[in-house]
Design a protein around this nucleic acid. Structure first.
Lengths: 253, 253
DNA sequence: CGTATTTTTGAACCCTGTCAACTATCGTGG
DNA sequence: CCACGATAGTTGACAGGGTTCAAAAATACG
């Protein structure tokens, strides 16, 4: 899909003064950089550079030893594995506040690109590695977030494993809308703005664009969701969606 | 599958004297505990207890806050998510030397159980957490191994996404036999002893037992593998197997 | 040696991919 | 403002791969 992906033009990189850099950061407080304090925090702030990337552009390619690591400021960064020309599988999604890239050497076995438009804060990898060596708080924070990400990826794996298209899409919408978290909250319709087009959803769920489309209309016909626009989903019947997504954790013992 | 899983009997837990505990450890040198040195190493050694578990038994259940973390000494520990009674998806495999469990609080969103018989070295979670807080080498080692595991899980995800049954089984055998690593090594037949039965392979690949069986016989008929017993695979035509598994990384740029 | 379990094989059905055509949406320029 | 083309999304028909159900064969085990 991103065969002809272009490097981000240098003009897109700008550097505010250190004290401004983090002050207006949308993820201030709930990202790695917000969880560390004192010296480590200041050192990170001094290191970061903002970058804005839009859809066909990518941050790095599969198999590269990325010279940078980063934190998503806004938007969505997708991790992709290309299978054949024009056929890619999305193996991970990084939302605002999440860490991207591969510290401590080693190649990144997937490409990093924006879904829509994303803003990231990037750090030179070697400088970041050094910093993490000095301030153990960075490493610890990184560890807990990586463990959490691993768990999420494994849940996703359980989803792809044995579910039909209907369950996959329902689970995707439930996961993306974080419906399970607020399961007991009000039953008001939940409005979601998807940053993905049909093709990308298909790449996430391991389906084709046509099947995804069919499942959307099927959910609409059953009055479980509404589709004001193709990227806007209104969940009408939250319980039905959760039921379709197929309960896991049957034996919580 | 493991609905009636039993806790490991206490008699299976034994404690060799600290100096013996690690001396004869099969993963000595290539596990977390082997990568740290000095005090940290000794503290870990003093903390560890060996445990042996056999197939239907499990170490912990989905959703539990596990009181232990551990390292696999020998055999295979599978991470499973149960979908319905008798239907589970294997979302991870820990081999000798790999870390299992969830340090720093939080619940483990999957169950841990042996595939066949496995031997693990377990540590009380709270004591391990404290130790990791003191010795940053432990945390760092854990971080790099977790990052590596995350990458492997994402590769697996890419595999489950869009592959047919033939490609899935070929990729599984290639991955498990580490054929890709020694791709340029001798072309001698590679003998693999699978610790999984057909049902477990099906759970790993997101297929049914029948489809897995069919693909095995299909590979045998094409003289790519031989099956002396159902759990023993002899790879005759390594290249053909790798070709079937479907090359990724088309655009290494 | 007989029973239980696992694995293999067969046949029918159904879901999803494929190919194709149609519709909707959006931006551009006349 | 509308015509136009380009892109994205929807819908339909059909075929193929995988599941399901069923039964036979092979293996493990007492």
């Amino acid at each position: 899909m991103n065969v002809a992906a272009l490097q981000v033009p240098e003009s897109a990189v700008y550097r505010p003064s250190p004290q401004d850099a983090c002050r207006d950061c949308p993820v201030r407080g709930n990202a790695l950089c917000g969880a560390v304090t004192g010296e480590a925090r200041d050192a990170l702030a001094a290191l970061g550079r903002r970058k804005r990337i839009t859809e066909p552009a990518s941050l790095s390619w599969e198999g590269e030893t990325s010279p940078h690591v980063g934190i998503v400021r806004s938007g969505i960064v997708k991790l992709t594995v290309s299978r054949a020309l024009g056929d890619e599988q999305i193996v991970g999604i990084a939302r605002a506040g999440e860490f991207i890239g591969r510290p401590f050497g080693g190649t990144v076995p997937y490409g990093l690109g924006a879904a829509g438009t994303a803003e990231v804060c990037i750090f030179p990898r070697d400088a970041f590695d050094r910093l993490a060596g000095i301030h153990s708080a960075i490493g610890h924070e990184l560890l807990t977030s990586t463990l959490a990400e691993l768990d999420r990826t494994r849940r996703w794996l359980g989803m792809l494993g044995k579910k039909n298209a209907e369950q996959k899409l329902a689970a995707f919408l439930a996961e993306f809308g974080e419906l399970r978290l607020h399961a007991d909250a009000g039953l008001d319709p939940v409005v979601m703005e998807l940053p993905f087009n049909r093709q990308q959803i298909a790449d996430i769920l391991g389906l084709t664009i046509e099947t995804v489309s069919r499942q959307f209309t099927w959910l609409r016909r059953r009055k479980i969701i509404e589709l004001p626009t193709s990227k806007c989903v209104v969940v009408i019947d939250r319980d039905a969606l959760l039921a379709l997504s197929g309960e896991c954790n049957v034996s919580r013992h």
